[in-house]
Amino acid sequence: MTEIIYHDAVYPLQPDETVLDALLRNGVDVPYACKTGVCQSCMMKAAAGEPPSSSQRGLKPTRRAQGYFLACQCKPDGRLIVGDAGEVIAARLMEKTPLNARVIRLRFEPESRVDWAAGQFVSLIRGDGESRSYSIASAPVRDGFIEMHVQRVEGGAISPWLHEEAEPGERIRLRGPYGDCFYLSGEPERPLLLACTGTGLAPIYGVLRDALALGHSGPIHLLHGGLDESGLYLVDELLDLAGRYSNLSYTRCVLNGASKPGLVVGDIGELLLQTAPSFSGWRVYLCGAPDLVRLMQKKVFLHGATSQDIHADAFIPKQV
């Protein structure tokens, strides 16, 4: 029986019918435009069941790996559960460590097993229902904990509470995972560019540790940018990693301050272009301040990376 389950309702498919047509035929209001697999307006995610690979054409490899597909091109072979609500798990705060004057590291122990990837992000939901998104800096399966780097946002709903009030033992809920900023195994020889600002290092650190653990053999260039040196963190750990892995280079970029070995003064958007004459063939991950991420995304694309190989995660502040 070919059928789809969407928002808990079952819709049988007629022969040769697409997921989009079946939903529209049943009066379900879903976004779409071109109906030819090009505009990606009708992109959906399979929560269970395999979407046919023909419905994943043109999607980024990280999206395909998560089960995203284009509803207008999808004629499933069997039952497909459609949805992107994410799963909700309970977790307990294990430890809280300052990383610099404004950023703390939190480690949560999940109360059920999750296969979330390092670099994806989740919603952290407090007991009263208030929530904010944070990136995963650990590999939950391998490490057994979920690590986040949280910067204190003045007047914020969650970060001041995490900084000042939440203590080890505190229980919260996590919903996710979201985002396509994660390491792809396969093609371990391809060069990686990892560029981030501020706590954009959290997902980047996750991607980096995954790449190293999974035996990435190509060069890895990590750039971490901040206004000045006090905005950077995990410097000793990253210097240590760069010392142990000969294919890893680590550059700190600050706008203000004096340059010294490993620390460059300048705009990270300009400095990253000096990493290589061309980013053709590279995989690129960009995380942090939204304006800078979008700018770096364009620069890296114009510097030779294909759009499919650029994974950007702009940290957009929650609108309240």
């Binding site: 030819t36 090009v38 694309f301």
Partner: peptide
């Protein structure tokens, strides 16, 4: 950029005489 590239693909598909419903 990702949204824009999807739109550019739609435009090029149309200009190439390909299947489109625009």
């Amino acid at each position: 950029m990702d949204t824009q590239i999807a739109k550019q693909k739609a435009f090029l598909t149309m200009a190439f005489g390909g299947p489109n419903h625009y």
